[in-house]
């Protein structure tokens, strides 16, 4: 049977269900191009803020048995320069970009969403959950349904593009937050952002490995949690989900689709497995579709809720 990786999401078609999540690569038009060439169907920019940000001093990444700890600190060239990079990427290649936006209050999200709407991006993603900046900005927005609703509502009001709300696994009741995002006008949600944050220690110097002390946890260790949370949310909301968290193989991507996601983010695996992992994953998903007689990823059956 002729199968295709072509995936439908929010009224558009993508060449693969695999999504480059915000924060991995995506800093410049070159790095968006790199991710596109690697095999992502949709690429997301670095989270852009109103002003440029240098991010944290290193070390900002560390490995452990279950994956990665990171605290890059939301480095980005600012909304104006960032949108120019997206523009330049879109001029080179006809491939869709999601622009990720990062702010700490509704007013800034409104401003960013308005500016991002006049760009080459096809979707806007709101980064509501980065734990790297908890020290600076207090409780993450994504942990409160009122705050999520407020940010999403503001962005949607000024956005001319579909708005995707990126949610954090650190919320006590994630389906309630997802529902709040939907009711505030989000076209989709993406989940999960990094877990934690967590701590790793260098025992020789007796200091935290990461310079900012704590970092978001990602990689294989968070996969089962991501699958469970996606599955939990999909039964409660009507809008589609971009599922991510520790996915690093074709089988795990299929698991994420089966759990209820419409597209699948792959982040930490770009480090742990190398960028070639995307080629292997696309080929593996195609093999699965052929073996199981599904025309495209859209036809992969969702796990029934009663089976849980």
């Amino acid at each position: 049977m002729a199968v295709s990786l072509c995936t439908r999401f929010l009224g558009r078609e993508f060449s693969s269900p695999l999504v480059l999540p915000a924060g991995i690569l995506g800093m410049s038009y070159g790095s968006l191009q790199f991710a596109h060439d690697a095999g992502f169907g949709l690429v997301t920019s670095k989270s852009l803020s109103l002003e440029p940000r240098k991010g944290h001093e290193g070390p900002v990444v560390a490995r452990f048995g279950g994956g990665i700890l990171n605290s890059l600190g939301l480095c980005n060239p600012g909304i104006d320069a960032g949108l120019k990079e997206i523009e330049e990427f879109s001029c080179m290649v006809k491939a869709p970009v999601m622009v990720s936006l990062f702010a700490t209050n509704r007013h800034d999200f409104e401003e960013l969403a308005g500016r991002a709407s006049d760009s080459a991006a096809v979707f806007i993603e709101l980064n509501l959950s980065c734990p790297n900046v908890m020290d600076e900005f207090g409780i993450p927005l994504a942990s409160s349904k009122e705050l999520v609703a407020d940010m999403v509502e503001g962005a949607v009001k000024y956005a001319k593009l579909p708005v995707v709300a990126k949610l954090s696994p650190n919320a006590l009741d994630l389906p309630v937050i997802a529902l709040a995002a939907q009711e505030a006008g989000a076209a989709a949600v993406s989940m999960i952002n990094t877990l934690g944050p967590g701590l790793l220690i260098d025992t020789a110097v007796r200091k935290p490995v990461l310079a900012p002390r704590y970092g978001g946890i990602s990689g294989p260790a968070v996969l089962p949690l991501a699958l469970k949370l996606v599955h939990e949310c999909v039964g409660r909301i009507k809008i589609p989900i971009i599922g991510m968290g520790g996915v690093s193989s074709a089988d795990e991507a299929v698991q994420m689709l089966m759990a209820g996601a419409s597209m699948v983010g792959v982040g930490s695996a770009v480090w742990l497995e190398g960028a070639q992992v995307l080629t292997r994953m696309n080929a593996g998903i195609r093999d699965y579709l052929e073996r199981e007689n599904f025309v495209s990823p859209d036809f992969i059956p969702k796990l029934e809720r009663k089976n849980v």
Binding site: I24, Y29, G30, S31, K46, V60, V61
Partner: peptide
Amino acid sequence: KCGVGVCGSCACDP
């Protein structure tokens, strides 16, 4: 920044 290919800081154009 990261040294391992995830942060995108050292990507060359195009």
